[in-house]
Design a protein around this nucleic acid. Sequence first.
RNA 1: GGGCGUGUAGCUCAGCGGUAGAGCGCCGCCCUUACAAGGCGGAUGUCGGCGGUUCGAACCCGUCCACGCCCA
Length: 884
Amino acid sequence: MTDNTQRGPATGPISDPELPTQYTPAAVEGALYERWVERGYFEADAKSDKPPYAIVIPPPNVTGTLHLGHAFQHTLMDALTRRKRMQGFEALWLPGMDHAGIATQNKVEQQLAEEGKSRQDIGREAFVARTWRWKEEYGGRILGQMRRLGDGVDWSRERFTMDEGLSRAVQTIFKKLYDDELIYRAERIINWCPRCMTAISDIEVDYQDDEGELVSLRYGEGEDSVVVATTRVETMLGDTAVAVHPDDERYRHLVGKRIKLPLTDRTIPVVADTHVDPEFGTGAVKVTPAHDPNDFAIGRRHGLESLTIMDERAVITAPGPFEGLDRFEARAAIVEALREQGRVVAEKRPYVHSVGHCSRCKTTIEPRLSLQWWVKVEPLARAAGDAVRDGRVTIHPKEMEKRYFDWVDDMHDWCISRQLWWGHRIPVWYGPNGEQICVGPDDEPPAGEGWTQDSDVLDTWFSSALWPFSTLGWPEQTPDLAKFYPTDVLLTGHDIIFFWVARMMMFGLYAMDKEPFHTIALTGLVRDEHGKKMSKSNPNSVDPLTWMDAYGSDAVRFTLATGANPGADVPIGEDWVKASRNFANKIWNATRFALMNGATVEGPLPDASRLSAADRWILSRLGKVVTEVDAYYDDFEFAKLSDALYHFAWDEVFDWYVELTKSVFAKGGEAAQTSRRVLGEVLDVTLRLLHPVVPFVTDTLWTTLTGRESLVIAEWPTTVSVPGAGSGAFRDEAAEAEIGLVQKLVTEVRRFRSDQGLQPGQKVPAALALDGTALAPHEDAIRQLLRLLPPGEEFHATATLPVAGASVALDLSGVIDVAAERKRLTKDLGAAEKEKADTTRKLGNEAFLAKAPEPVVAKIRTRLATAEADIARITAQLDALPPA
RNA sequence: GGGCGUGUAGCUCAGCGGUAGAGCGCCGCCCUUACAAGGCGGAUGUCGGCGGUUCGAACCCGUCCACGCCCA
């Protein structure tokens, strides 16, 4: 095919046609990547006339390093953008990182701890400065690793959620939401991590079944006593009521009374609340409004006091003997104290129940009553849901839609304040007389005595939610924003559909009035070769860099792409990466063969009338693969497109077409000239098709083959067309059938040779009877493939193999292994007889003939005819065999 | 408890109404001048169980069993 890229000297390390016999990724990848970047191939031009195609990278955590999950998603995003770039789109893949509030702050606090200091010791300003230094020094290791993987991202547009522009975006949208009364401050029960010492949102809590204890306690005295059960005994110090169901006869006499709370000098009311489940436990529950979300709700309904009995480290603050104890120490001590008073009625231990843990540090969450900032999500979430319901945004795979709807249609308000120092500080100032002012990016903060800024920062996901437009310059109306928003595809793991995807949808629709992307492609998780989950904490975790070092980035990429069935988890193992490496090497050597035999891409393809059947066959197949791969790309079927290319390249081009050209090249002349051009074409197009997935080896080979600048900026193949074969995509079913016969005959004789114990290289005299069959023009190729010698004077056929009207007679110069041959033929006969029986049965079924569609019946008839012919042929062969 | 999904060759997975497939692994022969990171040939499955629909079921329906994920 032609191309608009400029001709230039071949620049790869293999410009010498004498390529080494093995592909060495390490020798080309690093330099090749830097060349791509230096030449600006990945830099998008907002002023271009080309249609835009944009993907923003799910920003990795600034503290992170590349793991297989990144490698997987990046491979897919890279493939998508590389193809679109080749298709003539102004393709932008925008990179960057998020500031990872808690994780980054933890890193710096650890550093400080090693110096015996805390962040409080050095103060907020110094701490933030130090965190920036940490980021410059240690952060972003993943960016270098992305280069190793070959990510074709636009580094000139790299962004960081804490950089100036994105911080301005955060402040802008905060102010807008605040003014629209979609952000508010309220005292609620939040998920508190006593180790990180911050609030976290609902979805940052991981629930797991833990072994705890269930203790039943008797509150009150005599007639006025009631038994309640709890897994968190220590919270009883903060109880301000006992609740029962209003219809529960057992406790009716107690409702409205006050009973004594043990270990304290307080009495607490018994309240009736319909939310209490009379079937669960004793039907009476203790109520601790300041330390449990359900209890908080009961407290609000009954006007109960909320009594906070722990500090932010989860140390008991309630005055008395337990003050100063950690929550778990206090739990044991309080059980002991109650037991001494005879108030422990029952204990179940271990008691397995679901407990929330901080997703960052695994510490048990302590529900805590505190004053936090919230986003009122209802209108935002509804819009986010509608965008998908209305079809403006498509989720792949579709099964994930339900999960998305379940979430956005029943979303709780989002707690966005974090008690951290590293992050976007909440732009709200409090005045000396209770004033509260939200400061926009262009506003001056209030000056004067007594004004202070809110000390909290925003959830990191708050800034990540702006990513598809903040990275393009919003709130400024930049050319980038005009050109590339909305972006096209958002590709990420299904595990962050709530954390990130839904929130981008909400903020994108709110701030831009336009959904941030039209397609959400969700991937599964990377697993090991036995399907076990891979994570940093598991020993099965593999650093993709070690595999890239050993086998090349292309091998890792191809393996991941081959495993990428939509939405499904991807298992990966070293053996599979090796197999991909072998594939890259195979491509290398096939191209090497082509170059050694003068394959060329120069000039138009020869006229169809000059092409051999093999030429027409492979071009026809090539055209089909082009179509197939394109369709798979549009459906995010990376596994299928990789598989299709693997099999086309290896099974058809390398195993058959290349082998068929050998006899042509040996003979020389015009036919050889033609095949050189066809082979060049087939490799040219195949390398283009493979390039988005395995960019390094393909670009290295393609520049050598074509002498052109780079495959990165080459055109994506659309169709294969051949001069003189009519307009449009070239197809030649006749040639495909003809080569199919060649393959059948060759395979048949190979089986015979193998069964007869002939060594693969051993040459055998043979007489071919091909006249009058489609095989006639292929005698040279058949002799070459089967290593057949022309029959000499002494030729005496010892075995004759009939195939498709033709036959091959071989002179094995001696006795053939009759037993082996009989065994082979008997096996074939068995298969043919089974086929005959199966098809005869079907055709004897009148219901089948009456109801099955005609093409199906015809097909079965053909199968029967074939089976009968096979039986006749094989029987004749068996009969011709000398007796055993 | 609710929802989604998965059980197909030794392993990892495609196929989702008309002859059971791939990769890796396995067995045999071969260093045949592109490639041993290779070539050629071969073996391997009551398609989780049971029932139903259909001319026909790995595929559709019901049910049971096992496993995974999400939510509560």
